[in-house]
Design a protein around this nucleic acid. Structure first.
Length: 629
RNA sequence: GGGCAUGUGGCGUAACUUGGAUAGCGCACCUGGCUUCGGACCAGGGGGUUGCGGGUUCAAAUCCCGUCAUGCCCGCCA
């Protein structure tokens, strides 16, 4: 895989390294150190820059400016770098724009739709868990953030050569489902709308009645029956949950979010995952069963041992964590421990699988754990990414630490909690229980967000004079709306809380998905009916004006994907896209392509390459491009 | 009480992991640009003591200490 930006860096590093060893024999700087010293200077100062002289100056107790001058004088470029200068202590390199442009454009051309990728993951199998919404209500915009993050992270990891399994954990044995189930049986309402929305409304209604006499007790006993597995109630509850998940997956499908497998809590219970896991843990003394005292009959883990294992482990007020309660039921963390032992292949063959959705719109089926069905080859991974909000930091930390206690540091290090901030709405929260997602006017479900956005986009599409493609207006509006929403969530760093605003969501100007999509549409419009010279020989039309700035950015795409992936930060890609689109727009305004004279072929090639990179990067975010909008 | 996250022009944000040249971008505001490849655009302008106080350093939004504010977590609940 070709990464021109990296090639350029390496050439510069080699040039500096060579100069250091010739001029400053006593100060041996590592290539890694030079790499960290690199930055992009203002265009006037050069194309790539290093601040390494400051470091050398410190060790040698000399003036950094002099060091830089000596370094620059003694450094020689090879293929791309023509000139190396010192300025204010920095060492700046200037690149031969024709030679480098040739390398970048040929790399993109040769990449055949896989240019902006990396082989970082080396085919390692990873399981990404998201969004794990309780199966008793519709996705609201908070769940949507999770789903979009999970989807984009999965795409990013795939682009970096990981083998990704997209898994969704369905807790159909929770209090929430029990409450909705109770409502279903006792409130006398019949489904008159999308099932998940209706069920969510039952849930809100039940929650209001929980204070009435006996209701809470009834719900609890209902949950107990559900957990028995073979009862009439458990079958009925599972059926209800499945219907709800089917509805939720209509939402997912609307956003082009897909999964490979659903894992149901009731199937985990049925497969006796807990028993298998805890017999191993008890055998090895990782956890112990208390026979007396405060925690009599509980299975606990000593938190002091965890504290010693994990330095950043916060000190909880208690000294032990109960994993299995005295009545034999498991806590959330206990379930997660067993589940992760399964993910990493530590438990023998367990689940049966069936098909939940025969064919998703990506062409693949969605499998599900099931009471009876086939054995399949899920899990057994090298890495697990859990997209879970930041409130679960503590239990996730215990989870990791448990593997440390098992002597499986290798696994502990490969459990990544992708912790993200919560989504609020102006003047309120999105509580599922209290119905905050229902809103007062427009609701905050993922469905209505898409609907509203699509409506607004459609208005714009219809009033646009430039679009000839009016028959496809609806399809275009749908794509643009999805792009707008996804970009809006993914451009915010995951750890930040978001306060949702309709005004921002329905703005399509500036740093937005539609801007990027629009840029792509303009690029492809130029290319329409044009022949792109695949093996362009003449790079003489290359200038240092707005064309080279654009080409340099194009050269960085593979590194951007890699950085985004290794940091689990989707905003690395959105930032790059904005930068790229801005550079292209500038190029578009100032450098005529079709009337470009002798530079025409070259500029066509630049436009073609930009469209290619835009398409690849947007695809990684889960955003499909349109050629007219 | 302990811990975690966040704090950057009126609003929303990037850069913080790995210190580097004048803190980047968008919205809103002001000025200009469509007979020329699509104005969901471009060019220009005003607006910032990066919460506050110390420290380290040639160099701090970035690292360290303290402090304030906001949100969250610390149940045999789920």
């Amino acid at each position: 895989m070709s990464a021109p930006g990296k090639d350029l860096k390496n050439e510069f590093i080699a040039a500096i390294k060579g100069s250091v060893s010739r001029n400053f024999k006593e100060s041996d700087v590592a290539e890694e150190e030079i790499l960290l010293s690199l930055s992009i200077p203002k265009p006037d100062n050069g194309d790539i820059s290093s601040s390494i002289s400051f470091r050398i100056a410190k060790a040698a107790k000399k003036n950094p400016k002099e060091i830089a001058e000596k370094l620059a004088a003694g450094a020689k470029g090879a293929r791309f770098i023509t000139r190396i200068e010192a300025l204010n202590g920095y060492v700046n390199a200037f690149v031969d724009e024709r030679e480098y442009a040739k390398h970048v454009l040929e790399s993109i051309e040769g990449g055949k739709g896989e240019y902006a990728r990396s082989d970082m993951g080396r085919g390692a199998k990873v399981i990404v868990e998201s969004p794990s919404v309780n199966p008793n209500k519709p996705w609201h915009i908070g769940h949507l953030r999770n789903a979009l993050l999970g989807d984009a992270i999965s795409n990013m990891m795939e682009a970096c050569s990981f083998k990704v399994e997209r898994e969704d954990y369905i807790d159909d044995l929770g209090m929430q489902v029990a409450e909705s189930f109770w409502g279903y049986m006792n409130l006398g309402s019949k489904p008159d709308k999308k099932f998940d929305t209706w069920l969510g409304e039952q849930y809100v209604e039940v929650n209001k009645r929980l204070k009435e006499k006996g209701v809470e007790q009834q719900v609890k006993s209902l949950l107990e029956k559900m957990e028995e597995g073979s009862s009439k109630e458990s079958n009925e509850a599972r059926r209800l949950s499945e219907e709800c998940v089917k509805a939720q997956y209509q939402t997912a499908s609307g956003y082009s979010v897909y999964h490979d497998v659903l894992v149901w809590e009731s199937d985990i219970v049925r497969a006796k995952l807990l028993d298998k896991a805890f017999s191993i843990l008890l055998e090895n003394g990782i956890v112990k069963k208390e026979t007396s005292g405060e925690y009599k009959d509980c299975i606990i883990v000593d938190l002091e041992r965890i504290r010693q294992m994990a330095k950043d482990f916060e000190s909880p007020s208690e000294d032990v964590k109960v994993l299995i309660r005295s009545n034999g039921t498991a806590t959330y963390v206990a379930k997660d421990i067993a589940f992760h032992m399964w993910k990493f292949g530590m438990l023998s063959d367990t689940f049966n699988y069936g098909i939940f959705i025969g064919k998703q719109q990506n062409g693949k089926p969605l499998y599900t754990t099931a009471q009876s069905g086939e054995r399949m080859d899920f899990a057994n991974v090298k890495k697990a990414v859990n997209v879970i909000d930041n409130r679960q930091r503590y239990p996730q930390l215990i989870l990791k630490s448990m593997f440390m206690l098992m002597g499986r540091k290798d696994i502990a290090e490969q459990i990544m909690h992708l912790s993200y901030g919560k989504v609020d709405v102006e003047g309120g929260t999105l509580s599922g229980r209290e119905g905050g997602w229902m809103g007062s006017g427009r609701s905050y479900t993922a469905d209505s967000l898409l609907e509203e956005t699509e409506r607004k986009v459609l208005e714009i599409v219809k009033s646009s004079e430039k679009i000839s493609d009016k028959e496809n207006a609806k399809a275009i509006a749908r794509s643009v709306a999805i792009g707008a929403i996804k970009f809006e969530f993914l451009k915010i760093a995951p750890e930040k809380n978001i306060t949702f605003s309709w005004a921002r969501a329905l703005n399509f100007e500036g740093n937005t998905g539609p801007y990027c999509m629009y840029t792509y549409a303009r690029a492809t419009k130029i290319l329409r009916n044009q022949e792109i010279r695949k093996s362009l020989k003449d790079y003489n039309g290359m200038t240092r004006k707005h064309d080279f700035g654009l080409v340099k950015l194009l050269g960085n795409a593979p590194e951007v994907t890699e950085k985004a992936c290794s940091e689990y930060r989707t905003n690395v890609i959105t930032d790059y896209l904005i930068e790229l689109c801005t550079a292209f727009s500038r190029f578009y305004e100032t450098m005529p392509v079709l009337k470009g004279g002798s530079a025409r072929e070259l500029r066509l090639m630049i436009v073609d390459s930009t469209a290619e990179v835009l398409n690849e990067m947007l695809t990684v975010l889960g955003i499909a491009t349109v050629s007219s909008m």
